[in-house]
Design a protein around this nucleic acid. Structure first.
Lengths: 97, 97
DNA sequence: AAAACATTTCGATAATAACAGAAATAACTT
DNA sequence: AAGTTATTTCTGTTATTATCGAAATGTTTT
């Protein structure tokens, strides 16, 4: 994975609210979690939440699936894994220690 | 590790220049790498670099050790590990898949 | 087709971050 | 103590991000 892409993902995860959102996404698994549910859990305005979701999506950290009038957000697990792999392989120099 | 603290570290790593700096720090191991060497490698102004180093330090991602007039920067490996652990434990829900 | 619901976009403001030249500080060398 | 080297702090500017109410959009229910 490219450094720029990883930096982008880390940047988007690097905000308390977005990290909290992402944590919930991951906990929800492949089924995902409704935008409205996230909003209730975090108690933040819808417009603010929507921006944060757009940010996370822009880093390929989530996808959305509509079911009626409800939008479900699903963590993009492969992207998270790629980020972790970058930190471990490119950065975490176990061999040096 | 606290979510806020992790978010802070992710935020600081989430900048292309800082991630590139950190990558070099890690590659350098416990011995570290001189500020001047980083500057040469990345070809950026000293004042800009200094700000980025301060940012990384503010997230406990590096420490500095002076040797004469040269400052060495050393990655704070335990902090990196804690961040990775958070992403894996709190976020990466392997069990769900 | 009107009302209700779920979510996004608009619009505006405030806060933070990034950048880099110039001046300052710290440490060594002569 | 003057000069040289290494790095940071100062100062100011520009750019990006965060926030959220209000209006708009898309979807379902009646």
């Amino acid at each position: 994975m490219e450094l720029e892409q990883v930096a982008k993902a880390l940047k988007e995860l690097g905000h308390p609210t977005r990290l909290a959102i992402f944590k919930r996404l991951v906990k929800a698994g492949y089924q995902g979690i409704a935008v409205g549910d996230i909003q209730q859990q975090l108690a933040i305005p819808g417009s603010t939440l929507s921006h944060h979701l757009t940010s996370l999506a822009s880093a390929q950290l989530l996808t959305q699936r509509r079911e009626g009038r409800t939008l479900f957000c699903v963590a993009q697990f492969d992207q998270l894994e790629a980020v972790i792999a970058f930190l471990q392989d490119e950065c975490c120099a176990d061999s040096l220690r």
